[in-house]
Design a protein around this nucleic acid. Structure first.
Length: 470
RNA sequence: GCCCCCAUCGUCUAGUGGCCUAGGACACACGGUUUUCAUCCGUGCAGCAGGGAUUCGAAUUCCCUUGGGGGUACCA
């Protein structure tokens, strides 16, 4: 089995492209076949080298590896020309001299008459005299495939089952080579998939009509087509195809790499949307490959859900050791942890790692260790209500011999204070936590106080006590 | 407009005629643990789009309706 991913470098790496790549790779892996990579850059004006780099970088980050060299369509013009010439000589393709203006006019008429829109094959059977006339006129031409008599084009889709599209619904004889000599996508794909000996082509559902056109080309060329499978699209909550244009950077892989998602999590999430083996939820690529069965790919679109992705990411982050986590966190760290000793750093990071959806979340969990933040309006009442707690705590913590180095001991002291004041739970902890960290959520209080140290803790405490409204 | 595809909790899905009082996961709500926070655990919430037909029996098969989506380029 040979499969491929064939992205077009006209934009950043799209989540849908990644998922398509994943299924193709899974397919190859599960049978010991090969998974290849081809760049669909036939449209020179829209293809950009920066996008090519971006795509490759994205695949590398995700751990998606392909077999052999990356093939560029832009370097294969001679291969295409050979096949074009043959179709021309066999009368399976022809020159069309219609100008864009004429075609526009044709479509306008069709719309006005409520006829089916599409090319009317007017140049299909041009007389030699007519051709000569156009030539002397100096008109340029495109090459169109002669679809011949209307007929059903059929294939057995691995995902969708039996498919049938009639050639009359293809919009007329399709152009396979532009006026400037560049071959069109549908033609290049066929030639390449054939020469690369692809056995299976899995791609997005948006290619369903293209597949019919491509099969027509395979037939004209007299070569056999691969097995096709059409994957459901990825939607957003608004139930439209996830796209960079409409939905911004959530559609691209870069966002997830930049924000500090684990590639394994993104891979897992993407596979699991539209595919399930009925048992596993969290798994790596090679595990999924063991029993991968394309028949189980879902037919209906999958709605992109950031909550689920976050959940996967937390699952994978939880597996990281402290050392691994620190290394991943390093590029995102806005604050210098060096003011804490090694043991303190570890205690801190271990205490807040459960709060992270992604690595870039680290800073928001660290701010109050490095900066003074205003207390949220809705939290100030806890300060007012707990003024006596703060006072008592201040007395305790301002004692010359109070030891700030032992987080557990600090916690014990707070507990003792609670008993003394006959307060417990939120009544005891929230005033303290809010006064010291400006927040109602955070890691263990003993640890926070210990890390902040005498000076900062007393400063914040006294500041809060001064602002109490009695 | 025309062609094509799709249809199980809010979301991802299991389910291939009786094992379904429709299972799991995310999210959400509540409870327990943590005298606070996070974690963890438990419970709950919630669905076969509608209508016909076939059948002793239908989420599962067929038809229609409705809804959603994709395609319809000298883009890919």
């Amino acid at each position: 089995m040979r499969t491929r991913i064939a992205p077009s470098p006209t934009g950043s790496l799209h989540l849908g492209t990644v998922r398509t790549a994943l299924y193709n790779q899974l397919l190859a892996m599960s049978t010991g076949g090969e998974f290849c990579f081809r760049l669909e850059d036939t449209d020179r004006t829209r293809s950009k080298e920066e996008h090519t780099d971006e795509i490759i970088r994205g695949f590398e980050w995700l751990g998606i590896k392909w077999h052999g060299e990356m093939l560029r369509q832009s370097e294969r013009d001679s291969h295409y020309q050979e096949h074009i010439d043959r179709l021309l000589s066999e009368n399976k393709a022809y020159k069309c001299y219609a100008t864009p203006e004429e075609l526009d006019e044709m479509r306008k008429q069709q719309r006005a008459n409520k006829e089916q829109e599409g090319y009317d094959n007017r140049s299909r059977d041009l007389s030699p005299a007519a051709v000569a006339a156009y030539e002397t006129e100096g008109r340029s031409w495109v090459i169109r495939l002669n679809l011949g008599q209307d007929r059903d084009i059929q294939w057995d889709d691995v995902v969708r089952g039996p498919m049938s599209i009639n050639t009359r619904d293809l919009g007329g004889d399709p152009i396979i080579q532009k006026g400037n000599g560049q071959v069109l996508y549908n033609f290049a794909v066929v030639v390449d998939d054939y020469e690369m000996q692809m056995s299976h082509v899995f791609r997005g559902e948006d290619h369903l009509t293209n597949t019919a056109k491509q099969i027509a080309i395979y037939q004209a060329l007299g070569i056999s087509a691969p097995i096709f499978g059409h994957l459901p699209l990825i939607f957003t909550k608004d139930r439209a195809k996830l796209s960079k244009r409409k939905h911004g950077d959530i559609a691209g892989v870069d966002k997830y790499r930049n924000e500090g998602y684990l590639p394994e999590a993104l891979v897992n999430y993407l596979i699991a949307t539209s595919y399930s083996n009925g048992v596993d939820e969290v798994y790596a690529l090679d595990h999924a490959a063991k029993d991968f069965n394309p028949d189980r790919i879902s037919k209906s679109p999958a709605v992109y859900d950031i909550d689920k992705l976050n959940w996967y990411n937390r699952e994978y982050m939880a597996k990281l050791s402290y050392a691994e986590l620190m290394q991943e966190l390093q590029p995102y760290l806005k604050y210098d942890l060096a003011k804490f000793d090694e043991a303190q750093q570890e205690a801190l990071i271990e205490a807040i790692r459960g709060n992270l959806n992604k690595f870039s979340d680290i800073n928001q969990n660290l701010v109050y260790f490095f900066e003074d933040e205003p207390i949220e309006e809705k939290l100030t009442k806890f300060i007012d209500e707990g003024a006596n707690v703060l006072q008592e705590l201040y007395k305790l913590l301002s004692a010359d011999d109070f030891d700030y180095s032992d987080a557990a001991a600090i916690k014990d002291a707070i507990n003792a204070l609670g008993e003394k004041l006959e307060l417990k739970g939120k009544k005891l902890f929230w005033p303290i936590r809010i006064a010291i960290s400006s927040r109602s959520h955070g890691p263990d209080l003993g640890l926070v106080i210990s890390l902040l140290g005498r000076e900062k803790v007393l400063e914040r405490l006294s500041q809060c006590m001064n602002s109490v409204r009695s």
